[in-house]
Every structure is written in structure tokens, then in C-alpha cells.
Simulated scan of single mutants.
Amino acid sequence: MSSADPASLGRALCIITGASRGFGRAVARELSRLVTPGSGLVLAARSGEDLRAVREELAASEAGRAGLRVESVVADVGRTEGLEAIIRAAKDALIEQVDHVMLVNNAASLGDVSRFAVSFNDLAEVDSYLSLNVSSAWCLTARVLQAFPQRPGLRRTVVNISSLCAIKPFPSWALYCTGKAARDMMFQVLALEEPDVRVLSYSPGPLDTAMQVEARSRSADPGIRKLFGDQFAEGKLMSCEASCAKLMKLLLEDSYTSGAHVDVYDL
């Protein structure tokens, strides 16, 4: 496959946060299949054991045997040293000059959904949540774009894993909704400021993950608990693999408006 192949993302450097499980793990697997030899994947997460398992799986895969370099970084993206470690690993992963740099900002947390908005009166608690879920994605994106500046022949893509909660309020989900909305707006601004960068906010839909278990068991709002409980009981939760396949198709076609919020149900 060449970099012009519509079924390939080219010789790419792909950085994925929250890559140890769930949707991030699915993204890592799919990207490994869509890049050409000489590419590198940087997988970042806080869970070292799960991250090593993903790295070993990809290193042993057909892509790994064909020369894909896989780096894993145990890092907290909410801390400066975590961001620095990811950038160091990204530079180390470059075996050859790449023609595509892609960052997938997937790392996120649900936050405390057992309480309503008026209970959050502690600045440190709210700041801690926003640091992990907003500031980290902002600062990592800036660092990646600075570390790999625009040059002729280089494509740069930034993906924000978003949510319906970025555009619709959910009671008892004030932290999560606020974080997702802030991230969407930040990436809309980035798309305007950096027209050479392809920017996408992708909402993967209700996924069958540990976060969904927490959502349907701990949400303070009974309507939200029922909504997600019914989706689970009726088999309406999506697998990470099914949603990820739609994201990959979107990235390969590359016809979305930069900065757009695209929901899995729009595809």
C-alpha cells in the first residue's frame, strides 16, 4: 500500500491516549492495520499491565512483524511529566520520516455522576477533573503540533473522542458534559486557527464498556439510570469495535469538515 492508497493512512505516527482498554484499545488495533510499514504507534495510559498487553499483542501482529514500531507509555496525561513522556516516546517511535502524524485524544473519565451540579463547591475537585479531561487534551495537542510542525508532504490529524454529552445536557453528569463540551469548542477553535490540520470530534455512541456500567449503576438521576439500563437490557449498546470501524472509515475518506462534531449515528 502507498500513502495514496484510499485503504491506508500512509506511513504514520499515531499517538493514542487511554489506549489500554475499551475504545482506545480498539482504536490502537484498527490503526495498526491501516498504516504502512515504517509507521509507529505510541500507546499511552495509566494502567501499565493492560498497556503492556496491548503493546505485546500489536508487536506480535502481522503489522508488528512487518515493521510497525509500537511504544507504550505509562503516563497520567493530567500531569506535565506525563505529557513530556508521551512526546519523548513519539520521537523515539520515528524509524523513518512519516507522511502522517495523528493524535487520538481518547483518555477521559466519567467523573462523579452520583451527585448533582450544586454539590460541586470544591474548586480543587472540579479543577482536578478538568485538568484530566480538558487541559490534558489541549496541552498534549499543542505539544504534538509543536513537536511535529507542518512541512511539505506531511498530513496532521487530531481526533477528539467526544460524546453526545458535548451538545446535550444530562442531569447528574455536569462534570462529564462540561468537559466534553469544552473539548469540542477547543477543537473547533483549533480547526479555524490551523487550517492545515485536520480536526475531528467523533462521538462513538453508547459503548459496552466499564464506563457504561458505572453510568447505569451510579448516576444520581433515575431517568439516566433507566436510559442506560434499558439500552443494556435491550442490547442497544455498541461494541467498541463496531464504532471504531466507523471512525476508521471516516478518517480514510477524509471528507468531513475540519472541526466538525460527527456522531456515530450520522454515519
Rank of each mutant, 00 (worst) to 15 (best):
G38T: 03
S39M: 01
S39T: 01
G40D: 01
G40S: 06
V42W: 10
L43W: 07
A45Y: 08
R46C: 13
R46H: 14
R52V: 05
R52I: 11
A53F: 03
A53R: 15
A53Y: 03
V54M: 00
R55V: 12
L58V: 12
L58D: 01
A59F: 14
A59T: 15
A60G: 06
A60H: 08
S61V: 07
S61F: 11
A63V: 05
G64W: 05
G64L: 03
R65H: 06
R65N: 03
R65D: 03
R65W: 10
G67C: 00
G67R: 13
L68G: 00
V70N: 00
E71V: 07
V73A: 00
V74E: 09
D76A: 02
V77A: 05
G78M: 03
R79T: 12
T80H: 11
G82T: 04
L83W: 08
L83T: 07
E84K: 15
E84V: 14
I87T: 09
I87M: 12
R88P: 12
R88M: 04
A89C: 09
A89S: 14
A93L: 11
I95H: 14
I95M: 15
E96K: 13
E96T: 13
V98L: 10
V98S: 02
M102E: 09
M102K: 13
M102Q: 12
V104H: 07
V104S: 02
A107L: 01
A108C: 09
S109H: 08
S109L: 01
S109M: 13
L110K: 03
G111N: 07
G111Q: 02
G111S: 01
D112T: 06
V113F: 00
F116M: 13
A117C: 13
A117M: 12
V118C: 08
V118I: 03
V118A: 08
V118S: 03
V118M: 01
S119I: 00
D122I: 07
D122A: 14
A124Y: 11
E125D: 15
V126R: 09
D127P: 09
